[in-house]
């Protein structure tokens, strides 16, 4: 059982095909699988459907796969800050399915947990509920949402051991665990691969059972909105 691969290209080899569904972790540009996105860009796989909370920014993150016209459809909750996205969407080149953020996260968690659908109050009485099964429980109305099972998941973690046990860092965890769970195959890119046994088993965020391939590499970790406060005078 060898999970560690030399590069993004090596880890992606044999897994990509046109028209596939990919689930990607990350929130904005925080905790996105930069290296695997670059690998998919180099592979040139086309007609992708990508389930990801956002779609990067112009020229970075998933925005690169928009520039290269590799994405056919996005399943996202928020797609601002991306002019090329809007251009392709408004011209009809790109399909878009809006999911409320919590619904998208739960669709991934459920899909990875053997739950094909779940009921939620989110979106009842809005356009999101149109065409979906409604059901009342204890006097409240809920809608049925489907679990997502992706052909491939690409996620970013802070550290992994060689069995794929993952630790995330701060808010870079976000969609990465549910995205990892919902993939038939999951590749994790990390900042550091540490020896087996060096992570306290009680502190593992995502067990290696969800992770099939691992790569290590340098991350740019671009900041989308740099906000600071002034230091008070001592």
């Amino acid at each position: 059982m060898k999970k560690v691969y030399e590069s993004a290209d090596a880890a992606l080899d044999g897994l990509l095909r046109d028209g596939m569904l990919i689930a990607a972790g990350g929130f904005g540009l925080c905790g996105i699988p930069e290296l695997l996105i670059d690998g998919i860009l180099r592979a040139g796989t086309r007609d992708l459907t990508v389930a990801s909370n956002n779609c990067g920014v112009d020229g970075f993150g998933l925005g690169k796969l928009l520039d290269s016209r590799q994405i056919k459809k996005m399943i996202s909750s928020y797609v601002g800050e991306n002019a090329e996205f809007m251009r392709q969407y408004l011209s009809g080149e790109l399909e878009l399915e809006f999911n409320p953020q919590g619904t998208l996260a739960e669709r991934m968690r459920a899909g990875g947990s053997g739950i094909p659908g779940f009921y939620t109050k989110t979106g009842v009485g809005t356009v999101i509920a149109e065409g979906k099964e409604h059901h009342d429980f204890d006097g409240e109305t809920y809608i049925l949402e489907r679990g997502i099972v992706a052909d491939l998941s690409i996620v970013k973690a802070w550290k992994a051991d060689d069995t794929g046990n993952l630790i995330f860092r701060k808010t870079a965890r976000n969609f990465n665990p549910p995205a990892a769970m919902c993939g038939r195959v999951c590749i994790a890119e990390v900042e550091e691969i540490v020896p087996r046994g060096s992570i306290d088993p009680d502190l593992i965020h995502l067990p290696g059972i969800y992770v099939h391939r691992i790569i290590q590499g340098e991350h740019e970790k671009r900041i989308e909105q740099r906000t600071t406060r002034k230091r008070e005078e001592a």
Binding site: F27, T171, E224, T228, R229, K230
Partner: peptide, 20 residues
């Protein structure tokens, strides 16, 4: 609150994508 200048962490943002 927002970090002091020079102490921004790309792994630590709020829902508005601001460093915190």
């Amino acid at each position: 609150p927002f970090p002091y200048e020079g102490e921004e962490d790309p792994d630590l943002i709020n829902a508005g994508k601001q460093t915190i």
